[in-house]
Design a protein around this nucleic acid. Structure first.
Lengths: 222, 222
DNA sequence: TATCCCAAATTGGTATCCCATACAATCCAG
DNA sequence: CTGGATTGTATGGGATACCAATTTGGGATA
């Protein structure tokens, strides 16, 4: 694999895992030594990450994209029509084997699993459901939205009850798809998105100070 | 403005105007002489265009993204939930001045206007409506979808009745938003998207041969 | 001590340079 | 004449050199 893709992937991982703080400055020269490559592939990786909005220009400089928690509302508003459409289509189009695949994924994540696992499965569930819709544009949009949410979602998996609540909701959505009940599945999906949004907003209000220290922008949050 | 952004913009324009044929190969060296810049900014522009899916890798080579007309169905399926949501939100949130702005845009495009104008306004209308929703994610998704549709839409503006039909539908959608009738606006928007899809598919079937010569991939189209 | 100013270092933008490789034309063997 | 090895050439990937601009740090001065 090309060096550029490797750097892109590693850097992406570092950003999404909060290993690199939101808003942190990235100099091409630092990345150069960090990844032992020259600026050419590093610049390509940065341009690419800029497209995914994980990195952004700040004047002439590169910074890790800050997390704008004010976006949480708009993001939920965006996801609801898309994911309700996705589950409806999934009812019509998904094979039993497809559904079983998603079910396995959920089952594989039990109480004892590490936070990282919950985080990953919680994201992948939505992407996989989108995939069941058979519409590549929906898949791409949901993937992008989940990426955008990804860093904020570390808040959710930090507390156990929150994790388990989300897991139960995922199960219910999948249950309705399995039972081929599109309207119930859509309702459940919309509720789940709202619940997640509310859970996140609540976590935020509980500890604004701590969050700010972690690089979360709490401004503009009601 | 940086050279890279200039090159990006020019190349983008050449692709969207079909000045560069879909599927056409782009060599970095040719672009180098074409834009009188070195490979560094050209490569950055290519990576960026790759993110917009206007350019793609074919092995190690760069090619102008082919047009996959089989996507038309999926694209409409994607747009409907988003745009119906957008017009509903627009009813709730758009100011009269905002609406008047869009109205002016439509008025500015009269019968005598050149094809390019119809094409641009036909795209911008949807983006502006999305903007009235106040949701940046919806705006971005619609912008992306319209970009994706952009090259195929040259087919639509090639014939006069088709243009005028679309224009009437735009007026009706805007009328319902102005009258603050969200459900009617949503219904109208969904119908318009379906109509557009059907118009395009009909144009396609009328002249497959000619299209193929223009670089449109007609495969996988029923 | 506070402030201002200039030199030096650092940064991103651009231009080349070198290299491995994919592809093609060519040439020789059968 | 045909087919396969070979060599030549153009291409993209990566490294490096150079530049302009911006930042920074320290020292002279009020």
């Amino acid at each position: 694999m090309s060096q550029m893709l490797q750097i892109h992937e590693q850097l992406r991982e570092m950003i999404l895992s909060l290993d690199l703080g939101p808003g942190e400055r990235l100099t091409e020269r630092w990345l150069e030594s960090r990844f032992e490559g020259s600026r050419t592939p590093i610049r390509a990786a940065l341009v690419r990450l800029e497209g995914e909005e994980l990195v952004r220009r700040d004047g002439r400089n590169w910074i890790v994209a800050p997390i704008d928690l004010g976006e949480l509302e708009a993001l939920a508003e965006f996801r609801i029509p898309l994911e309700t459409t996705a589950v409806r289509l999934a009812c019509a189009r998904a094979s039993e084997a497809d559904i079983a695949g998603v079910e396995e994924m959920l089952d594989a994540c039990q109480s004892g699993a590490p936070r990282e696992e919950w985080h990953r499965v919680g994201t992948d569930f939505h992407v996989e459901i989108a995939r069941l819709s058979g519409n590549p544009f929906i898949v791409k949009a949901i993937t992008g939205a989940m990426t955008r949410l990804s860093r904020a979602r570390w808040l959710e998996v930090w507390t156990e009850p929150s994790r388990e609540q989300a897991w139960r909701e995922h199960r219910r959505i999948l249950g309705f798809i399995k039972a081929d009940d599109p309207e119930a599945a859509a309702r459940e999906a919309a509720d789940h998105i709202k619940d997640t949004r509310d859970r996140l907003l609540r976590s935020l209000n509980e500890d604004r100070r701590g969050l700010r220290a972690r690089g979360f922008a709490v401004i503009g949050l009601r």
